[in-house]
Write a protein that binds this DNA or RNA. Structure first.
Length: 489
RNA sequence: CGGGGUGUAGCGUAGUCCGGUUAUCGCGUAUGGUUUGGGACCAUAAGGUCGCAGGUUCGAAUCCUGCCACCCCGACCA
């Protein structure tokens, strides 16, 4: 069949690529490095957005929108920030086309912009430039704003969802009167992300801080949530930055304190992107296709009728209509696939590929017995159920699936997290794939050496990390805690 | 951006080394019929700038040059 996937064991990255395309989530576009997110994939993203947006609003944030283009001069105002993004910026230099000598369309050399515009790779600069005008007094603080937007980072190598030149995300940018408040905000949003990952995406994550080397360009501290994919590689699923007063100083954003003094404000920024779509696929799916957590599945239940003729179908439909009404009344999204152009077996395979959590099949035998066949996507278990109270049972089952997917992922992570106490052991464990907890002397130098020699990076220093005496895996110098090493996406 | 690989119908492919009728096969698509509890079968049909642009040749999917896209590996990154 043309719908066949590579297997995870065979070729993990091919499997991922196949799955994203064949499950109709996204495809490569005519534009290098940029993807088309297809309706089914976008529907999942919309559910993520809806859930996150509510969580942001519940924590006091409001949405706004800032320009796609950023004047080049803004970028140079925060030194480490420019340095971090300079190598991957798309730049607009002209504003007009015209007909060339041979009738082709060319960029009009006369229409050069006086100042080039950068297509935003992130919006700190334009936002902080704007905030200067909005903040005068401590009464204007805190300023808690989020934006849903697209950004562009000119990547050399791209992979659908995981790394594309253009991607969708949200970026929160907040301003506070004190460092404590800003740190608190940074941590609060990290918690929001972790809760979202675990409860909605059903992906367990480790909360932690990045090392100086992995820190966001312009931040004092970068917090992150790290997840493990089914090939044992780590994926950063969200970040929250404490920016200190760097941007306030660069853009001269001051406020009058209660004491009547001019002070620079304290900043945070935090974001998650369509990369989460990639995480979702890689964390749960199997060789038959997607496995979607019920909370994100655009269709939670599909009903497939088994019939030989019109008459049978209409008999089944009478029963199905009642089931649909019941399911809908419980807020469950349901699709009735009564097409006669495809056989049931074809539909089963198709909905497995699409990751629909629950499938209900109903045929003549069921009509006689007052039953349906219920199949769950996560375990592929099938059971025959009485139609009585079916909606309640299905609702329950969806909850179970959500929980089961999470615990499966958690179990995978736990069985693929190791401790290493020698560099030899460390390298061996990395090759098996997974998180390796090891002592590190705290220097960037050692971190970079390990990266060079093993391709592993320090994913994070877990929050509330257990303190223990030890020796750095590489340099042998004393260390007080283990950090998480892994190869990463 | 460096190394490798691949581009032939919607998808997957044969043919390319060694140039020669009308470019192969499978899936999918359309129509008709038989089917329908795990990706049905038969028949018929439609579908091609052989990635793009040049060149060599009587003749190019095939040889040469340049370019483009995608995949894998490295450097960079959410």
């Amino acid at each position: 069949m043309s719908k066949e996937l590579s297997t995870r064991a065979d070729n993990y990255s091919q499997w991922y690529q196949d799955l994203v395309v064949k499950a109709d989530l996204a495809e490569n576009s005519a534009v290098r490095g940029c993807m088309v997110i297809k309706p089914y994939g976008y529907a999942i993203w919309e559910k993520m957005q809806a859930t996150l947006d509510k969580m942001f609003k519940d924590t006091g944030h409001v949405n706004a929108y800032f320009p796609l283009f950023i004047p080049k001069s803004f970028f140079s105002k925060e030194a480490s920030h420019v340095e971090g993004f300079a190598k991957e910026c798309a730049v607009v230099t002209h504003y007009r086309l015209k007909n060339g000598e041979n009738g082709e369309i060319i960029v009009d050399p006369e229409a050069k912009l006086e100042e080039e515009l950068i297509v935003r790779p992130t919006s700190e600069t334009i936002i902080w430039n704007t905030y200067r005008g909005w903040i005068e007094s401590y009464r204007d603080l805190p300023l808690l704003i989020n934006q849903w937007a697209n950004v562009v980072r000119w990547e050399m190598r791209t992979r659908l969802f995981l790394r594309t030149a253009e991607f969708l995300w949200q970026e929160g940018h907040t301003a506070h009167a004190t460092a404590e408040e800003a740190v608190e905000e940074t941590r609060r949003m990290l918690d929001v992300y972790a809760e979202f990952a675990e409860k909605t995406l059903a992906i367990p994550v480790v909360k932690g801080t990045k090392t100086a080397n992995e820190r966001f360009a312009g931040a004092l501290d970068t917090y992150c949530i790290e997840a493990m994919m089914q090939d044992g590689k780590a994926l950063q699923a969200g970040t929250s930055h404490f920016l200190g007063q760097n941007f306030a100083k660069a853009f001269d954003v001051k406020f009058m304190s209660k004491e009547g003094k001019q002070e620079f404000v304290w900043a945070t920024s935090w974001g998650v992107s369509t990369r989460l779509m990639g995480a979702l696929v890689m964390a749960h799916s199997d060789d038959q296709g997607l496995v979607l957590p019920p909370k994100l599945a655009p269709i939670q239940v599909v009903i497939v009728p088994i019939f030989k003729n019109e008459e049978q179908l209409s008999g089944i439909t009478v029963v199905v209509d009642k089931i649909i009404a019941e399911l809908k009344s419980k807020g469950i999204t349901v699709k009735y696939d009564n097409r006669d152009t495809h056989k049931p077996g074809w539909k089963f395979a198709e909905y497995e590929l699409k990751g629909i959590p629950v499938r209900i099949a109903i045929g003549p035998r069921d009509l006689e017995n007052g039953t349906v066949e219920v199949a769950r996507r996560d375990t592929k278990e099938k059971s025959v159920m009485q139609i009585t109270d079916l909606a309640v049972k299905v609702e329950h089952l969806l909850d179970q699936i959500q929980t089961n997917i999470y615990s499966k992922a958690l179990d995978y992570r736990e069985t693929h997290t190791y401790k290493a106490d020698s560099y030899e052991e460390f390298k061996k464990l990395l090759d098996q794939g997974g998180f390796v907890l090891a002592h590190w002397d705290g220097t960037t130098e050692t971190e970079l050496k390990i990266k060079e020699e093993t391709k592993a990076t320090i994913r994070c220093i877990p929050l509330n990390n257990k303190q223990e005496e030890g020796k750095c895996i590489h340099s042998g110098k004393p260390s007080t805690q283990r950090v998480i090493f892994a190869r990463a996406y």
